[in-house]
Structures are given as structure tokens and as C-alpha cells.
């Protein structure tokens, strides 16, 4: 399998205005996605997953690292080459209300990438825009509307149509369904899956919603404080999490069955500020299984099964399972 998207040691830090300290949003992340596959990137807000996605598209300039797209070095591209590269790598944004210019008609928004990247004339663009609308299951007349005249689900599909206009090979999906109703969500996910199959598109699927990640991804990487602490095949990572953080994160997800009593793992305290990230394992200060050797250097990903690794020093000894906290009592109205 050829690696389509390959990023090594990506670091991104932001300087804080009026202070010398740096916010370390991403601390050496490796991302590898084969062509036509989906990597699900999960983690709580502020874990750096969106920053990783933006770095892969060079919407943000990584502080360090190497990023390749089909063997091409993205970071070496000059502005004009990068601008043309945007036809091959696109992004679907989290909030469709915010990511579509309120003063442009849908037609201009959908045809814009065609105008920028193809030599289609006005009638060719018009035809292609109609095609894209059908592809995302919208009607051609929606093209003459303004964003405020459409619903959130429709707008998100416009965002997808816009991203797909130039038939990109790689799509960063930044929580594409988090602002959508549950009823609309399934439709958008199915649409994305179908388009991926038909066009062999590589996805980086960013989400904090574990259910959608499970449905979408071939592989999953779990991020905490700018580091990937566990990665592997989706079923492995989500079904049998090894890193204490993944265990806690997954146990916090709600089940569709409200009666189901599952083991619950609770981490004490708050996520530390990304300004002063603890050295060694980022989870160490909160981890109930923490011991002295967690504090030194960041642990490597220890392999559990082929392709499934977790960055916890206890993995090789198999003492990495969190103790169960008592399930929450069921509160009933009386």
C-alpha cells in the first residue's frame, strides 16, 4: 500500500501576544494515510487535532516537521505552487454558517474553485456546478440562493461540494458533522463515504464524536495535548483502548442504550494548559497509573497488536488498564 499522505514530526507552536511563552498546540505528530483510506483523529477540544489538519494543508505553517502528499514536499512549495496544490487537497470546515461568505451566492462559492483551478468557461462551470449539486443531493436552484437562505445541513453539503469541485485526492474533514442535527448527520456521513469510494479520496476525519469516527475511519489516532498517544485500526483502538487516556475518553462516550452499565474511568483534574506541557507522558499528572518513569521522556508507541500502538510505559508489562470507577447511579424522576 502506498502512503498517500505522510507527515513526520509535525510541531506547531503559537506565540502568545504580550508574553514570551509559546502555546504548543502540536508536539511532534506523525500521520500516515494510504490512498483512499480514512484516518480518524480524535481527542477533546484543544488537543490540537484541527491544528494538525490545517498543517497538513499548510493553512498553518508548521514550526517543524515534514509533510508529503503523494511524495511531494508540501512545505517546500512556493506560494504559487501551493495555491495550485489546493486543487488537490481541500478542507471541509466545522461550521458551515461561518465558513461560507454570507455575501456571495452559492453559485459563486461553488464555482470559485473551478474558476481558480480549471480553464472551464462560464458554461462549463455552470454545468459542473450543477453536477456537484446533484452529487451532494441538492437541487440546481439552490445555486441562486444566498447562504442564509439554506439550512445547516444544506450549507454543509455546499461546503462539501465546494471542497470536491476540483476533484481533490485528499480531504481534511474538520468535524464536518458536529454542527448538524442527528438526522442530517447520517446523510452527510453516508454521502462522504460514497464519494470517497467513487473517487478514491483520502480522508483525515477530525472529530470528538467517537460514534461518527467509528463509522467513518479505517484507522484511528487519539490525541491528547498535542501528541498522538494511541493509534491503530479503528476497531482495535475503539474496541480495545490501551492508553489510559483512550480508556477514559471512550468510557465517557454515551451509549445508545441508556440502560447499559459500563465500566467508567474518571481522570482527576483538568487538562493542563498547552503553554506548560508536562515533560514525559502528557497524561502523567492526571493518570492514576502514573509512576516515576512516566516523567522523563515521551514514551514511544508500544505495539499491542500489528499496527496498534499506545504511548504508555506500562503497555509492555500489560499493567496499563485503568481501575474501574463505580458506575454513576441511575437518577430517576420520582
Amino acid at each position: 500500500m502506498s502512503e498517500h499522505i505522510e507527515a513526520r514530526g509535525v510541531v506547531k507552536s503559537f506565540s502568545v501576544r504580550g508574553s514570551r511563552s509559546l502555546v504548543k498546540a502540536v508536539n511532534g505528530v506523525d500521520i500516515v494515510i494510504p490512498r483512499g483510506r480514512t484516518l480518524g483523529l480524535v481527542g477533546e477540544s484543544g488537543s490540537g487535532k484541527s491544528t494538525v489538519g490545517r498543517c497538513l494543508l499548510r493553512l498553518l505553517e508548521p514550526t517543524a516537521g515534514a509533510i508529503r502528499h503523494g511524495g511531494e514536499d508540501i512545505l517546500a512549495m512556493r506560494p504559487e505552487a501551493l495555491r495550485r496544490h489546493r486543487a488537490r487537497a481541500a478542507m471541509v470546515f466545522q461550521d458551515p454558517y461561518e465558513s461560507l461568505n454570507p455575501r456571495m451566492r452559492i453559485r459563486s462559492l461553488v464555482e470559485e474553485p473551478l474558476m481558480l483551478h480549471t480553464d472551464l468557461g462560464a458554461s462549463g462551470r455552470r454545468r459542473r456546478a450543477g453536477e456537484l449539486m446533484r452529487m451532494v443531493r441538492l437541487e440546481e436552484f439552490h445555486l441562486d440562493r444566498y447562504p442564509h437562505e439554506l439550512s445547516g445541513g444544506q450549507l454543509q453539503r455546499i461546503g462539501i461540494a465546494r471542497a470536491l469541485a476540483t476533484e481533490p485526492e485528499f480531504l481534511v474533514l474538520d468535524e464536518p458533522t458536529s454542527s448538524l442535527d442527528l438526522s442530517v448527520r447520517a446523510g452527510v456521513l453516508r454521502l462522504l463515504k460514497r464519494l470517497q469510494r467513487e473517487h478514491q479520496i483520502t480522508f483525515l476525519f477530525i472529530s470528538h464524536d467517537l460514534t461518527t469516527v467509528a463509522a467513518m475511519s479505517d484507522e484511528v489516532a487519539v490525541m491528547y495535548l498535542g501528541t498522538v498517544i494511541e493509534r491503530g485500526p479503528a476497531a482495535e483502538v475503539l474496541g480495545n483502548p490501551q492508553h489510559p487516556y483512550s480508556q477514559a475518553l471512550l468510557s465517557a462516550a454515551l451509549s445508545v442504550d441508556p440502560g447499559e452499565r459500563r465500566t467508567r474511568h474518571v481522570l482527576e483534574g483538568e487538562t493542563p494548559s498547552p503553554v506548560d506541557i508536562p515533560s514525559g507522558c502528557p497524561l502523567a499528572p492526571r493518570c492514576p497509573l502514573q509512576r516515576d518513569d512516566c516523567r522523563g521522556a515521551l514514551p514511544p508507541l508500544h505495539e499491542i497488536s500489528p499496527g496498534h500502538g499506545a504511548a504508555c510505559v506500562r503497555v509492555p508489562e500489560g499493567t496499563n488498564q485503568l481501575p474501574a470507577t463505580a458506575p454513576l447511579p441511575i437518577v430517576t424522576a420520582s
Binding site: 496544490h85 470546515f93 465558513s99 461560507l100 456571495m104 470559485e112
Partner: peptide, 26 residues
């Protein structure tokens, strides 16, 4: 820093076009 300006960048707009087509009308 509006999201649609970042989206315009992600689409491959040149800076002057972002200023003129995406920011100015607003």
C-alpha cells in the same frame, strides 16, 4: 480571521482576491 476567509485561502484564492472578493464586500 473569519472562517470563510480561511476557507477562501484553502480554496486557493490569491491574496488580492481574498481582500477584494471575500473581505471587502463585508
Amino acid at each position: 480571521d473569519a472562517m470563510y476567509v480561511e476557507a477562501a485561502r484553502a480554496t486557493g484564492n490569491k491574496p488580492w482576491r481574498i481582500m477584494w472578493r471575500h473581505i471587502m464586500p463585508n
